[in-house]
């Protein structure tokens, strides 16, 4: 197990290097002279040249990349073009908010998805199954930003049960978390259902029946535990779309998280900020995937044998 984690850690090193390379290339892809852009509008020619030398922009690309990486490793993600403050400082303020949102959303994804999937699988092709699956299909088809707006309209504007936007109290978390978690919940529900239906056909379920166990024991004790194993991977992948989705949901609900920071930075062409935000979000995702992989392996070891 320990070896496995070490191996996976080594495997993600090239992935992380690749991610930094892509993020680094964002700057290079921007049309025009990086130094001019970084110096900001209205900077004098001298300032631009000074900056070019300071940041090593006159050096060859691979040297720039190496110095970019060494800066990143030291926690220097550059400075914002807007206020010249370190990008990392801003990220450290924004990231906890996004992580909190992501946490509650993934909770909704998992809990809601599992419950719905189990309801479906227990009586396949019944009305409850069809109902759940139709809702799940809607869940993967509705754009999150639209769902967010609809929820906001119904619960905040019409019913006035919940605050419209912002991030001050627990009540503020509810709608964004549902909005962000709904799509994932739908996918988890579909996966749980098909995984359960597959498990129910296995030999060991027949053994459990032959023992005389009641149906609920067979479903919850014998089938579900096995059915959940492939669902773990799906949840891990969902975490990726969920992190990406924060960009939209934070904009809908005016939450000052990392996602909104990136969008605002793109609008103001604050490239170092975009780079920092994208890099950090991707690193979080890479590590969450590592965690999920490890979990999957722990559970799957038992099953892989035959």
């Amino acid at each position: 197990m320990f070896l496995f984690i070490i191996k996976r850690l080594l495997q993600i090193v090239p992935v992380i290097l690749g991610v930094t390379l892509v993020v680094f290339l964002i700057m290079q892809m921007v049309p025009g002279d990086s130094a001019v852009i970084l110096a900001g509008e209205g900077a004098s020619k001298e300032t631009v040249e000074q900056l070019r030398v300071d940041l090593g922009l006159n050096k060859p690309m691979h040297e720039q990349y190496i110095s970019y990486i060494s800066n990143v490793v030291q926690g220097d993600l550059g400075n914002s073009l807007k206020n010249n403050q370190p990008v990392l400082d801003e990220i450290l303020i924004r990231l906890p908010i996004t992580m909190e949102l992501a946490f509650f959303s993934i909770l909704i994804t998992v809990v809601l998805g599992l419950i719905a999937g189990i309801i479906s699988a227990v009586r396949p092709y019944s009305y409850s199954d069809i109902g759940v699956m139709v809702v799940a299909l809607l869940g993967i088809s509705l754009p999150s930003f639209w769902l967010g707006i609809l929820l906001m309209y119904v619960f905040s504007i019409k019913l006035q049960w919940l605050p419209v936007a912002g991030w001050d109290s627990t009540a503020h978390i509810i709608l964004p978390a549902i909005t962000l978690g709904a799509g994932g919940a739908a996918i988890v529900a579909r996966m749980t259902r098909s995984s359960m239906l597959e498990v129910v056909g296995q030999d060991y379920i027949r053994t459990a029946k032959a023992k005389g166990l009641a149906e609920h024991v067979i479903i919850y004790k014998h089938a579900l535990r096995n059915a959940l194993i492939p669902v773990i991977t799906v949840v891990g992948l969902q975490f990726g779309s969920l992190l990406g989705g924060t960009v939209l949901v934070e904009s809908v609900f005016a939450i000052n998280g990392l996602g909104r920071m990136i969008v605002d930075a793109i609008r103001t062409r604050d490239i170092p900020m975009v780079q920092g935000g994208v890099l950090v979000a991707s690193l979080v995702f890479v590590f969450v995937n590592l965690l999920v992989d490890t979990m999957y392996r722990v559970f799957n070891k038992r099953i892989d044998l035959n």
Binding site: D203, Y204, T207, N226
Partner: peptide, 13 residues
């Protein structure tokens, strides 16, 4: 007693 000993036991219990 089932014919398939490899798959007739629940793998996670």
């Amino acid at each position: 007693i089932f014919q398939e000993p490899m798959t007739s036991l629940n793998p996670v219990i």
